[in-house]
Amino acid sequence: MEKTLELSAVSYQRNQQLILNQINLTVAPGTIIGLLGENGSGKTTLMRCIAGLAQGVTGQIFINGHSSVVERKAQVSYLDALGGFSRRTKIADVVEFYAAVYPDFNVDQYRELSDFLKNINGQQKLGDLSQGQKEKLLLSLALARQTAVYLLDEPFKGLDNHTRKQLLRSLVQWKSPDSVIIICDHYLTELTGVLDEVVILNERQLVAREKISRLKQQQISLEDYYEQQLVQKWGE
């Protein structure tokens, strides 16, 4: 099977706590995956491991066959909360930074996304943005990079219902056919429409993986499937 992303026996420990335990995952090109789990189950940490931010990860992570951290970073666009920029930074300066340091950052695509999301103008400062405006900016920046893997950690948390639905529908049209998107969010009903697969993390382990098409065939909603898996795990 052709694979864009491959995780093999990935474990991660910090502050004397095991946070991820023996995660195995293979993702085919073009797949959109929903990463679900309770708070503290390790979703963000797993994304940080894939993005090359976490240190001391054991096991192996490959993106398009590359395992070195630098190569991986070049192929991952990670939705970050813009930590490191001061509140006084203008949006135009953030965009300029992205264009300077990421050779794959497409300024035209950023503008297109930004217009679509009715983003704020470039002269506005980060500190003046509402939570929703900030999320729109983050998404525009993350999706304007041309990478093999997009990691979207709670991308819709500050967005209103209408924008969220609009954005979810458009995710499919913006991504290149071969790129993989991993979304971790709590809006399960709305996510179902765009996801190809769902992966569930619970207590540091990957406990379930299923194709959305199969759930639809069996007429099981994503919420019900998620609940079932957690209950099953608690039963054990």
Binding site: A51, G52, L53, V70, E71, K73, A74, Y78, D80, A81, L82, G83, G84, F85, F97, V101, Y102
Partner: peptide, 15 residues
């Protein structure tokens, strides 16, 4: 020092 602990710089594809 801020460079070493923020995603803004540590996400960059450089050694």
């Amino acid at each position: 020092e801020k460079v070493y602990r923020t995603n803004r710089y540590r996400l960059l594809p450089v050694s």
